[in-house]
Amino acid sequence: MNHNWKPRELNPDEIGTAANAAALAEYLRGIDLAALLTAEKALVMRGFGVAPGELDDVLDALLPDRLAYVHGNSPRTKVGRNVYTSTEYPAALAISMHNEMSYASRWPTRLAFYCETAPGSGGATPVIDGELWLESVGPEIRESFADGVRYLQNLHGGYGLGKSWQQTFETEDRSVVEAFLAESAATWEWRSDGGLRIEQLRPAFVRHPVTGAEVWFNQADQWHPAGLGDETARALTQIMPPEDLPQSATFADGSPIPDEYITKIRDLGLEKAVDVDWHVGDLLLIDNVLVGHGRRPFDGPRRVLVAMSGTDEA
């Protein structure tokens, strides 16, 4: 394992192209992008001046089958053809490291980020090698998560904390939601108040389908009350049992995960990560299994868009 890993940077001088979006898209279509991404784990594309109106063409080269953010748990706004704002979370708070939708039965294999508006300061997207994260948490935590993570999600029907089931699944049709959940091997219950409770048992680690590398791959620290990052969220845990929160996590057998495990996992992820700073027009492409990502706090405006493609499953 390379403990000094960092994303590979592609710029016009290195790849020998003009410094514009069309040249970048043409270059990406002419290489074995899948092999390059698997080898490098993450790619940063800088100096091409990609404007918002040119983004679709570049994303088409990066993401062969752009996906909708169905069953996503973070607040986002859809701004284009399966293009979304990155997580809309208070600027003063960090977003801990995670692999996108690792709590679900299917997850995107690639994520592409695009900087439309650079932050005034801070706001980097940290990325972490999943093998390093798995190694870093230590044998005690790894062994305790060997059977996986049990996720519990409470989605309201229109009014309440967190996201509604309609926002989460991008539909008003309960039968569409039920079909999705049945295929996901989740259990669910429609509540008398119009809400939906979902329970899922998922692995805590997975192996990459090409390299075979075993990586830390779960969102226990983001779903667990001890991982909540602001005073309002923490206050909720004083007045609501974990099973009634918008989301919570336990060990596979339903027993509680110790708070100190959660904070160690979260803090190690942020500590071991490599920051990708943003300039207008930059793009970042990551292998969503090999690499986790997060967000550093920032000042001023910041608008980073995200799109995803490909699905893999437990």
Rank of each mutant, 00 (worst) to 15 (best):
D60L: 06
V70H: 08
N82H: 14
G122N: 06
M240N: 06
A39Q: 15
G16R: 13
P64I: 00
D57Q: 15
L268F: 07
A22G: 08
E243F: 06
D267Q: 13
R191E: 12
P242T: 07
Y84R: 12
G160Y: 10
R296D: 06
I95T: 11
L245M: 13
A146D: 14
Q247M: 09
L10D: 00
G212K: 12
I239M: 11
L236F: 13
W107D: 04
W107L: 01
A307N: 05
R197F: 00
R66K: 14
V276R: 01
D275F: 01
G254Q: 08
G310C: 03
N11S: 07
R106C: 02
T117M: 04
D32C: 03
S248M: 01
R302M: 04
F145N: 06
Y69M: 01
P126A: 04
P75F: 02
G157C: 05
L290I: 11
V304S: 03
L245N: 07
G157H: 11
C115G: 05
Y103D: 07
L268A: 02
Q222C: 09
R150G: 00
S164K: 12
Q219R: 11
I31T: 10
H98D: 04
D56T: 14
P256C: 00
Q166R: 15
S102K: 08
G292S: 14
E54H: 10
D13A: 15
H156N: 08
N11P: 03
